[in-house]
């Protein structure tokens, strides 16, 4: 009889919990998407980029970054693969995907790297103090006054973008492309890199507009582009998108899932804490345990008496 009661308690708790989880899970997945309604977007046309590094220079100037070790007009740095860091929010790398020209020379393709400003950013999700936020205009920006320096964002970012000022022992910040948040917040403002680009390899506009432009370009000239807009769906879509002549894997781009990365961890976490069911269940279980234990103690006296009698 005891066992059957316990079994009933257990199964009923699991059933209730399961029901709650299932309901909370679906409800959360819909409400937790951070993608703003009409954000800005940038389209990088890799067939246009000439690798002049003017975007790097403009980025340096508008963000007041320290002077680089190698001058911006020195394109020799393109020979080794670089990553954005705390002092350079965007860099260009040169790839040779294998295409050759009439003189049998390899034709380079240049790929610009910066924060992709994901529609549903993993860094924002990972930040435990809300120092990183996704803005209505698409920018993922950083509030240094909130940051505690845990660097979870750096671990979370699928593109490995946020960089930490390890060289600043007292006031380290997480640094990354700001999407020129202040500039684009103004009427007609453009990101520094996009406005300086001599060949307009970067097109800046509303995300929907530039996405349509990207698709239009591919449709108009299918021989020039592969049929993919990188960033359209990657990790739930990014504000920065790319079109290219060559497969993106050959240009240093990662193959990433279409689902926003925060979906799974946030679902699990949010599920656990929905309606406080987990603590409630926990305390209920504990209370139940206590009740069972107390009851056992009460009846225990009789048992010991019986035992004593037996021993005697």
């Amino acid at each position: 009889m005891n066992i059957s009661r316990r079994f009933f308690m257990k199964t009923s708790a699991v059933a209730v919990g399961g029901a709650v989880t299932a309901k909370a899970g679906t409800a959360k997945a819909e409400s937790r998407n951070r993608a703003p309604a009409d954000p800005f977007g940038c389209l990088v046309d890799l067939t246009q980029c000439v690798g002049c590094r003017k975007c790097e220079q403009a980025c340096n100037e508008v963000n007041h970054l320290p002077e680089p070790k190698v001058a911006f007009d020195d394109t020799r740095v393109l020979d080794c693969k670089r990553r954005p860091d705390q002092n350079a929010f965007t860099v260009i790398n040169r790839y040779y995907p294998g295409k050759k020209d009439e003189q049998n020379r390899l034709v380079p393709t240049y790929a610009k790297i910066q924060c992709m400003h994901c529609q549903d950013p993993a860094c924002v999700s990972a930040c435990i103090v809300g120092a990183l936020t996704k803005q209505e205009n698409g920018a993922v920006i950083y509030d240094k006054s909130k940051c505690i320096g845990c660097r979870y964002c750096m671990v979370a970012c699928p593109f490995g973008i946020p960089a930490y000022e390890y060289d600043q022992p007292f006031t380290p910040e997480v640094r990354k492309c700001t999407y020129c948040f202040e500039r684009i917040s103004e009427e007609g403002g453009k990101p520094g890199c996009a406005s300086v680009c001599p060949v307009e390899a970067i097109t800046f506009g509303k995300r929907d507009t530039v996405l349509a432009l990207a698709k239009g370009k591919i449709k108009k000239d299918p021989g020039r582009y592969i049929n993919k807009v990188y960033g359209e769906e990657e990790v739930g879509g990014t504000s920065w998108m790319y079109i290219s002549e060559h497969p993106f894997e050959k240009l240093g781009f990662l193959s990433l899932p279409k689902k926003p990365l925060p979906t799974l961890p946030e679902t699990i976490q949010h599920t656990i804490f929905k309606f406080l069911w987990a603590p409630v269940t926990l305390f209920a279980a504990l209370a139940g345990g206590m009740w069972v234990f107390n009851r056992k103690q009460m009846t225990g006296e009789d048992i010991s008496e019986e035992r004593g009698a037996d021993n005697e």
Partner: peptide, 10 residues
């Protein structure tokens, strides 16, 4: 650049 009416026009 980036005229939203004519995004395809550089």
């Amino acid at each position: 650049a980036f005229n939203p009416e004519f995004p395809e026009r550089p």
